[in-house]
């Protein structure tokens, strides 16, 4: 019976180790908050060009992650990209005139949506939309414009449209 007890104990330890590994993968390696993401409120932002933005990309404000991209669609009439953002409920005081830009983390990093708060007293609610947006930088367009500007002798514009 002694060996059977030892065997059962070893199997018990094995199962606990396995579950602990999954616990670690869930809590430490991935972001368990993924699952609670639907609690966030949704706002939309229209962009001329989203570049390489992907669903689930982070949404940040002041460098802090406050939500995720949950949908990217094309408005077939205006040919604009409609990006749906899910913002965590605790960040419920975003002014309605906030602006959104598509930014890149590092030189080759992933693209994400960065918000800049506005000054209005009214706050965005579920279903609201951001009016002021700035599209992604598309490298080819940027270079193309620099080339044409250099050829025509103008200075390159400080800001992309």
């Amino acid at each position: 019976m002694g060996t059977l007890k030892k065997l059962e104990l070893a199997v018990g330890v094995f199962v606990v180790l396995g579950l602990a590994a999954f616990f670690m993968l869930a809590m430490k390696v991935s972001n368990i908050a993924d699952l609670g993401e639907d609690k966030g409120y949704k706002i939309t932002a229209r962009f001329e060009n989203v570049g390489g933005l992907k669903v689930r990309a982070p949404v940040t404000l002041g460098g802090v992650r406050i939500g995720r991209v949950v949908g990217i669609d094309l408005d077939a009439r205006s040919y604009e990209a409609v990006v749906t953002l899910s913002i965590e409920p605790k960040y419920d005081r975003l002014p309605t005139d906030s602006s959104a830009s598509i930014l890149t983390s590092g030189v080759l990093g992933e693209q994400y949506v960065g918000l800049e708060p506005g000054g209005m007293d009214e706050y965005l609610k579920n279903g609201g939309s951001l009016k002021l947006t700035q599209s992604a930088l598309v490298l080819e367009k940027l270079i193309g414009r620099m080339v044409t500007n250099a050829a025509s002798g103008d200075k390159p514009p400080a800001k992309t449209p």
Binding site: N31, L35, E110
Partner: peptide, 12 residues
Amino acid sequence: QMQAAVRLVDDV
């Protein structure tokens, strides 16, 4: 960075 990129359902 790991947490931001690894998704629980899709990856793990």
